[in-house]
Every structure is written in C-alpha cells, then in structure tokens.
Nucleic acid binder design. Structure first.
Length: 633
DNA sequence: ATGGTGGTGT
C-alpha cells in the first residue's frame, strides 16, 4: 500500500521529529558486585551446612534465588543435595524454583527429571517447563508438553500462552498456533499485552501481517515489546516503508523505544538503503549513551554495509569489545556483496586466527560467495576443501555446494561444474542448476546450457528468470527459432513475479520508480532525459541489448520498453539532481538487467560520475565505465 | 512464595 507511493517524504522527514531519549538497563552494577556476592553466597552455603535440618522454605528460597541470578550451578546443586540428605520435602513452589535454576544453568535433563518426579504440579510448574523448552529452541517438546498439560485439566493462563506461542513458529506450528489462538479467545486472554505480543509476533512470522496488526490494534494497552513486535513484523517481511511509518506514528503517540526497537528500525532502513536515516539513528544512539549491545552493533554494521558504506561498518566492527558469529558474518557478507574478495579472505583468516568465535554455515557461505563475486576461484575452492576435510568445523549444505558451482562456472570450468553437480549426494536444486545456467550464458556454452536450461524448466517452470537467461543464450548464438518457442512456453507457464522497482534517496526523501507507474511528479521530464541520454550514449558506442526484452514486439518497441526500466529513471534522476562530486546511489529490488548495467557504465564514463547500484544479489560500484562485479552477477 | 512477550548475519 505505502510502497506504491513515489515521494515518501512524510515518513522519512519525520522519522526523528519527536526525539526521545531512551534508557537501557545497565549491567555495570552486576559486574562490579560479583565478587562480594560470591563471598556472600559461599557464606550462606556454609550456614546451610551448619544448620542441617533447621532449614525452612524462606532459607532455601533465598539461596536458590541467589544461585539462579548468578547461574551458580555447583552451589545450586549443593542446595538441592542438602534438601535430599536432610529429608526436606520441598513444596511445589520450591520444586518449580529448582527447575528454573537447572534451566538457567543449561541443565534441561535435571530440570525435566525434577518435573517428572513432582508429586503435584500447578500451572506455574507446567509453564516453567514449557518455557524452558521454548527458550532453548525445543519447540516440539514445548508443544507436546503443552498438550499434555491440557490433558491433565490444568488450565493455562497468560504466562503459559505467552511462552507456548513462541514455539508455534516452524513447520507444523501454524495449525496449532491457530488452535491455541482459539483457546486464548475462549479463556479471554487475547487482550493481555504479553499474550497479544506473542500472538501478533506469531502471525507476523507466518506472513499474516494483517492479522498481526489487527491484534495489535485491539490491545487495550501497549508497551515497548508489543510496539516493537509489530514494527519488526513489518520489517522482517520486507515491508520496510510500513515499518518506519508505524514507528514514526507510535513515537508520536508516546511509545517508549529501546534497543530492540532500534534494531528493528535499522533492519527497515537497511532494506531501503536509507543511509541518512541510518546515520540519524546511530547518532541518536551515541548521544543517549546507550550501552553498546552486541545485537545493536551487529544491526549497525549491517545497516552501513547495506547502505553502501563499508568504512563505517568496519569502524563499528573494529570498536566492538565483544563479537558474536553474527558480527563477523555481517561484516563478511558486507565485503562479499561489495565484491571485496580480498577483504573477505583476510577477515576470515583473522577470525580463524583469533579463534574466539566459531564460524557457522553462514560464515562459510559469505566467504565462498565473496570469493566467487571477486573472481578468487582458487582461494574459494581451497576453503571448500578445508570445509569438506573438517578443518572449519562446519558441514557443507546445499547452499555451499551451490557456491562451488558458481566458483567453477565463473572460471569457465563448465564441464567440471556439471560433473560436480552430477556427483552431488542429493537431488540438485533449481538454484544450483540456475547457477550453472548463468555460467553457460556468460561463457556462451550453448551445448551444456541447453541441457541445464531444460532440466531447470522442468523443475521450476514458473520462474520467468530461467526463460530469460536461456533465451539470452540462444539469442547470442543466433538460434532464433529456439528463442521463439521458449518465449511461447514462458507466457504459458510463468507466474507474474514481483514487479521491478528502483529507488534513490535525495535529501532524506526516497524516490521510487517502476515501469508501469507514472505518478512521480518528475516522471515525464525523466523519461525524456533517459531518451536524450540514450541518443548521446549511442554516439559513444552504447547498443541497447534487446535480448533483455522477451515481449513479442518489434525492435523499436523493445527499445522503448528498455528505456522505461525503473533503474534508468532512478539513475537519471540521480544524475540531474545531485552534485557532480556525489556518488549516484540507486537500489533495485530485483537483479539488474544487462542493458541497465551497461547504461550505468555509460553514465559513469560520459559524465565522470561514480555509480553505486545495489541489486538483489550484490553491490555494483561503477567507475569510468567499469563495474566492480566484472560483468558477472 | 514458583512461570511469561519483541531483536542482529543467508
């Protein structure tokens, strides 16, 4: 709905009109006092030993609370053991507290044993155990325990619902999630903030954003969490514009924001590549003296990188006191998408040397695709062999194999790539065949391209992109008969894909274009300007690549269609509306087409402008008629 | 007296 707007001034200008300082819990107190409290705990345990049987509920409860807050496993175990050796019979409250203690100390087995041995259970003990499973990611155990709970006629309450819903995300969860929703309505908990937050989050994560919004609107009171949940719901679905619109509105209505809220806002800004707003959020965070939480810093790294500013991203990364695997991955993905292969390899080496954080599947994926995008085939293959021989500690999955196909294909080792695919221990996916088809197209290997292409059309007949690539391949080999039959096939079988859209940020306003919509106020002027540029570029050698157009029309029409591509309009707008010294930054929601890529090169060459183009796959940095992608993307 | 919701990288 908001996406079809072309001038998005309201959202963007007003994002921080209503600046509010926000506070976060500080953890410095805890760190400083650990030592003295440890002594206290040791002292208390000594007292316990001395008192023997003379311990009551209050004494045990105090001790366990200390152990829980300090995650003091050995100490808590001693308390537990003391109950047993002194024949103390803990009540349901204490047993529940013990369960929580074991959960907090990562000992689910101990917790479950205690739960199973309980002579009586109440809704709290059930909820504690269910929550243990959901927090540790054991969704099916959490759900089956919930079902068992219902069978014992224990009625769940707002606590139970809030936690069990978080386990309804996953393969079978939605059916159950809806059933639980019915039960929530029946027992009248839908309007509870915690339950509502959890519920709307579940709907959002299944893509049901309207249901989620409905639940949010019906909440009688809102808090940071419910507001953040709905904002992040939009952001996670890529509805970035809506996420920001809602953020602004809720801020006006007095919402409190915390670091999680800002993380979600940054996600939305990354999607839009709204660098100026991203900087605003960053400044805001610095001014409000927020403790630098890793999650927030990771989000900042990703924001700067997706907004095209790797230097700032790296600056955040370098100043971090603590890094998680996500910090490394965000940085590696950033370099990879910008085609900075050497930086990828260097940073990955640093990660392995430091040996503090273990790489995961995403790490290796970023490294392999970084090598691939930068043309470092040999290095990429070395890393893949390190992986298969267990040196990295990550098992390859389908995506890693896909990267290898890409590495080989890019290097023109097409036969080898095909051999590799045939030896795979699983049925190759459409994505893998697609990689090879792209390689065949670039290296003009019609024979293998034909085999691969038709295999791909069998698996994925609805994907228009496959027809386009195969058709381009046939066209470049002059096989027009095949181009024609392919085109007919395409119009019969493909589904309409997402419409192409490009945008550019100027003075904190996003200007969005797509081919079929002419509502941008300067659209006419821009179309004429694109036309004019095309003529000028032709004199310099530009030849429109008509194979990018698959419609069955004459050449003149094809050229007209090409000139209406959204990225040309956005590029052109950048050219006329920004000063010469500024990089033209354009974002495209899909892969950029060959002709627009070429057009951008001419802009950079003729006008001496630097162009930064972010498409679905990567960044293209175009300077002096040359692109950082090496014309392979 | 015991239990609960939102977040970062593909």
């Amino acid at each position: 709905m908001f996406l079809s707007k072309h001038v998005l001034s309201s959202t963007h200008k007003a994002l921080f009109q209503n600046l509010r300082l926000f506070s976060l819990p500080s953890n410095s107190h805890h760190v400083l006092s650990t030592h003295s409290r440890d002594t206290q705990l040791r002292e208390a345990l000594l007292q316990m030993a001395l008192r023997g049987h003379d311990m009551n509920f209050q004494d045990y409860n105090t001790l366990l609370n200390e152990c829980v807050s300090k995650r003091a496993f050995r100490e808590g175990q001693r308390v537990h053991a003391h109950m047993i050796t002194t024949n103390y019979f803990p009540c349901v409250f204490l047993r529940t507290r013990l369960i929580v203690f074991y959960v907090k100390c990562d000992s689910l087995t101990n917790a479950r044993n205690l739960f199973d041995e309980m002579p009586e259970r109440n809704v709290v003990s059930w909820t504690a155990m269910i929550s243990a499973y959901s927090q540790r990611g054991y969704a099916s155990q959490a759900l089956s325990l919930f079902v068992q709970m219902l069978r014992t006629d224990t009625e769940p309450n707002e606590f139970t619902f809030a936690t069990v819903l978080t386990s309804c995300i996953g393969s079978l969860g939605f059916v159950l999630g809806r059933q639980i929703h019915s039960l929530i309505i029946k027992l009248n908990y839908e309007a509870h903030v915690y339950v509502g937050s959890s519920l709307l989050d579940m709907y959002a994560k299944y893509g049901k954003i309207h249901e989620a919004r409905g639940i949010f609107q019906c909440l009688p009171e809102r808090d940071v969490v419910s507001c953040t949940a709905i904002i992040s719901g939009y952001a996670q679905l890529g509805l970035d514009q809506e996420a920001l619109e809602l953020f602004r509105q809720l801020q006006d209505e007095g919402m409190q924001s915390n670091y999680v809220t800002y993380t979600s806002v940054l996600t939305a800004l990354s999607g839009l590549a709204a660098l100026d707003h991203g900087k605003q959020v960053h400044n805001h965070l610095l001014r409000s003296e927020v403790p630098s939480f890793v999650v927030l810093q990771n989000s900042l790294i990703d924001m700067y990188s997706k907004c095209g500013n790797l230097t700032y991203a790296r600056r955040i990364f370098d100043t971090m006191h603590e890094r998680t695997v996500i910090s490394w991955n965000a940085m590696l993905v950033g370099y990879s998408k910008h085609g900075e292969g050497r930086e990828v390899v260097e940073l990955f080496d640093l990660m392995r040397d430091e040996n503090k954080v273990k790489p995961d599947g995403v790490t290796v994926l970023a490294v392999l695709s970084g090598c691939s995008h930068a043309g470092l085939e040999d290095k990429g293959m070395d890393i893949f062999y390190d992986m298969t021989s267990g040196k990295i500690g990550v098992e390859p999955d389908t995506k890693h194999y896909g990267c290898v196909v890409d590495l080989l294909g890019r290097a023109g080792r097409i036969e080898e790539a095909l051999e590799f695919i045939r030896k795979l221990p699983f049925e190759p996916s459409a994505a893998i065949w697609g990689c090879l088809l792209g390689a065949c197209n670039v290296h003009l290997n019609v024979d293998i391209g034909k085999i691969v292409g038709h295999r791909l059309l069998e698996i994925e007949p609805e994907n228009a992109g496959n027809y386009v690539i195969l058709s381009n391949l046939y066209a470049s080999a002059g096989r027009w008969e095949e181009v024609r039959s392919l085109r007919n096939l395409m119009f019969k079988k493909t589904v309409r894909k997402e419409p192409g859209r490009s945008w550019i940020e100027l003075d904190q306003i996003l200007h969005t274009f797509h081919a079929s919509d002419c509502s941008h106020p300067r659209r006419k002027e821009l179309s004429a300007k694109v036309q004019e540029l095309s003529v000028r570029f032709k004199e310099a050698g530009y030849v429109p690549d008509l194979s990018c157009v698959l419609h069955d029309v004459d050449e003149e029409q094809k050229e007209k269609i090409l000139l209406s591509h959204s990225e040309k309009l956005a590029l052109c707008f950048g050219l006329i509306a920004t000063p010469e010294s500024v990089t033209i930054r354009v974002i495209k929601n899909l892969r950029i087409c060959v002709d627009c890529h070429n057009f951008a090169k001419y802009i950079s060459k003729i006008y001496g402008r630097e162009v930064s183009l972010r498409d679905k796959n990567r960044f293209h940095r175009i300077v002096g008629g040359k692109c950082s992608c090496g014309d392979y993307w």
